[in-house]
Amino acid sequence: MPFWFELIVSFFLLGGGAFILLGSFGLVRLPDFYTRLHAPTKATTLGMWGLLVGALLLSSWNSGMLNPHHLLIAVFLLLTTPVSSYILAKSALHHRLDWGTQTRGQEQAKRYMDDH
């Protein structure tokens, strides 16, 4: 395997791992539930894509032909991550979870707590 190809695959794998780590780090660090929701929704999705592209390139090189089946997981994640973050936010609103005191627009959120 030539060096430039290893370099590209390493870039995708390391980038993917770094963004997944960042998503989990945000989960621990951010102050309240609604801000914590941002980290896994965005960073973990991009991290998985990086890993999947790296795995796709490597397995295609090893088998000598393009096998794009890793893209199935990527497309699946693109479709499902927003849905699970939406329903998590909705159930958090329903449970009247606390938000940070400096959060603006609290009255608007309160109106959504009871209708669902």
């Binding site: 896994p40 998590l88 979870l97």
Partner: peptide, 11 residues
């Protein structure tokens, strides 16, 4: 809270 734990489990 429960939604927090579900979020962690999902991740």
């Amino acid at each position: 809270s429960l939604p927090d734990r579900i979020l962690a489990l999902d991740t």
